[in-house]
Design a binder for these strands. Sequence first.
DNA 1: TATTCTTATCGCAATATTACGATAGAATTT
DNA 2: AAATTCTATCGTAATATTGCGATAAGAATA
Lengths: 111, 111
Amino acid sequence: MGAAKSTEFSIKDNSIAKYAKALSHPARIAILKLLTKRQACICGDIVEELPLSQSTISQHLKELKAAGLIKGEIEGARVCYCIDEKQWKKAQTALNDLFESYNKTNSSNCC
Amino acid sequence: MGAAKSTEFSIKDNSIAKYAKALSHPARIAILKLLTKRQACICGDIVEELPLSQSTISQHLKELKAAGLIKGEIEGARVCYCIDEKQWKKAQTALNDLFESYNKTNSSNCC
DNA sequence: TATTCTTATCGCAATATTACGATAGAATTT
DNA sequence: AAATTCTATCGTAATATTGCGATAAGAATA
């Protein structure tokens, strides 16, 4: 009991949930904003900007990478992280479609 | 250790994360799609459509409600759930702004 | 080569999430 | 009034997430 039942749901629903999960922590939102706002994609720079330890930041980066939202490129001893544009747009579309599907059929709300 | 450090992040980042968290489970996506696609906002109908127990669905509904995305109205013995339009659009905007902030400054990707 | 810098991973602890059955309580039906 | 229907909540178990320090391993520097 308590085990995830993700296989019982559609691929699409799981995909949306996966993107949303990546965005479900303020630290990860802050990281993505940093990657967006400046060129400083170096891992160390992110660690300096956020109130979390290096190991914790590294873990959050790993999750964002697993979700596909970012990618990392090794630059010598450092790693440069940045948004994965293709997946970024996929995530945006997936989430926006969900929101829009309501807006379009916004006929008669029963509550 | 292991405690959430949400207070260390901005209200806005926490708000985005809160909405995303509500969307981070396929069952909740499925519930929202049901509320979107048909008028059947009755809790019991949702239970029948999804492969989860009544208590589990009730818990997911509680979380969606806590995030503000849905609201429930008691109709005798039943409860009618539906999308909270105002919050729905807030969530859509909050998430979309995050995505757009990258698309706009999409100048030179270092990776 | 030895040291330092940078990042990922391991191990651990605290907490949160997910799921279900049982049950309570309110409303409806018989 | 008794039985049934409907939903929320409690209790419990399994699993996942969050966070940190310690450490490992590769790269740069002295």
